[in-house]
């Protein structure tokens, strides 16, 4: 891969937004500090200058109002991209996301679809402590009516936005905060938003990850490979609806599964995936399913505590060894 062809995850997301704004005049970006500041993670830097304040709209710190306004604007024929600074702040708009965005189509008997995209940062690893670091995408994946995306690669960061905007229903895109500086190739500019991807092939164990943990799972697979254990790495990409087929196909070959999730273990996405494997591939399993999740604590500030709280390469490797040893 030549350096000339690579861009960062942040640039990929910016390029995707720029392309959407150019391509469709119904698209606009709205959120806190997306304009004059350039986005709190600099994703939208330069877009205000290029597209003006009507289409790159700074909002007050009113998550419920501007997320709800995004829903209303979508009902009114626009294609809004609403940015929420972090998933923790999205809780202030949870009423709008659940009670309106996810619900209106059904509650209106099919009359009101909501073609809205909400982007937000998720995840830990930057010493931002307990109100800026959680991974709550699993909560959103609980909600019928939503499509939940977790781009783990530069290609997905570049390519998921346009199909998300074309989706007639609300799509939430979770961008792991540790990925913005990662470089990679952007690909052709559009990807599917329905399936998981096999990022690495191996016959001995399946590592299932998404978003910020995909890179850690791949690094763990390298460590395991040096020991003679070859891992499949499934990047979920889409957290709702889950692509069961790709998961089961992999587990059917390796007979061992390790689920890596930066969310909490109890009642979380890893539990959902685990039970689906038990329901659909129980007799394929040669070992108990393993989970590597975030410790059940609010994310602490101190670096060593935060690192200890999160799934890391050694803990993923250890879980895989356990699975393979059984």
């Amino acid at each position: 891969m030549s350096a000339a062809n690579t861009i960062t995850y942040r640039e990929a997301m910016r390029e995707a937004i720029r392309e959407a704004l150019r391509r469709d005049d119904r698209v606009f970006l709205m959120g806190e500090d997306v304009g004059a500041y350039g986005g709190c993670f600099a994703v939208s830097l330069g877009l205000l200058e290029e597209f003006g304040p009507e289409r790159v709209r700074d909002t007050p710190l009113s998550e419920a109002a501007f997320v709800g306004a995004g829903i209303g604007a979508a009902l009114g024929g626009m294609r809004p991209i609403v940015e929420i600074m972090t998933v923790n702040f999205s809780l202030l708009a949870l009423d709008q996301i659940l009670n309106n965005a996810a619900t209106l189509l059904h509650m209106s008997g099919g009359q009101l679809n909501v073609p809205l995209v909400i982007r937000m940062t998720t995840g830990a690893g930057r010493q931002l402590a307990a109100q800026h670091s959680h991974s709550l995408e699993g909560w959103y994946a609980h909600i019928p009516g939503l499509r939940i995306l977790a781009p783990a690669t530069v290609e997905d960061a570049r390519g998921m936005l346009w199909p998300a905007l074309e989706d007639p229903d609300p799509v939430l895109i979770f961008e792991h905060g540790s990925l913005y500086g990662v470089s990679g190739q952007p690909g052709p500019g559009q990807v599917d938003i329905t399936s998981a991807a096999l990022r690495r092939s191996g016959k001995d164990v399946t590592l299932i990850a998404y978003g910020g943990t995909t890179g850690k799972a791949l690094a763990a697979a390298d460590v395991l490979s040096a020991e003679g254990t070859e891992a499949d790495v499934v990047d979920l990409r889409v957290l709702r609806p889950l692509d069961d087929a790709t998961i089961m196909e992999s587990v059917g070959r390796t007979h061992r599964a390790v689920i890596v999730d930066e969310g909490w273990r109890s009642g979380g996405l890893s539990a959902e995936i685990g039970i689906r494997i038990a329901e659909q591939a129980f007799y394929q399993l040669d070992a108990p399913i393993q989970r590597v999740c975030t410790a059940e604590v609010p994310i602490p500030y101190a670096r060593h505590l935060e690192e200890a709280a999160l799934p890391q390469v050694p803990s993923i490797v250890a879980a895989a060894r356990e699975a393979v040893a059984s």
Binding site: G68, G72, A73, G76, L104, M107, L112
Partner: peptide, 27 residues
């Protein structure tokens, strides 16, 4: 609900319809 008559519902979360109205007007 009756979208043909531009009747956007019937919201049972107190205050929940206001952001929708703001967004419809924005559109």
């Amino acid at each position: 609900f009756d979208v043909a008559r531009r009747f956007y519902g019937g919201n049972a979360i107190v205050g929940g319809g206001l952001p929708l109205a703001v967004g419809l007007a924005l559109a």
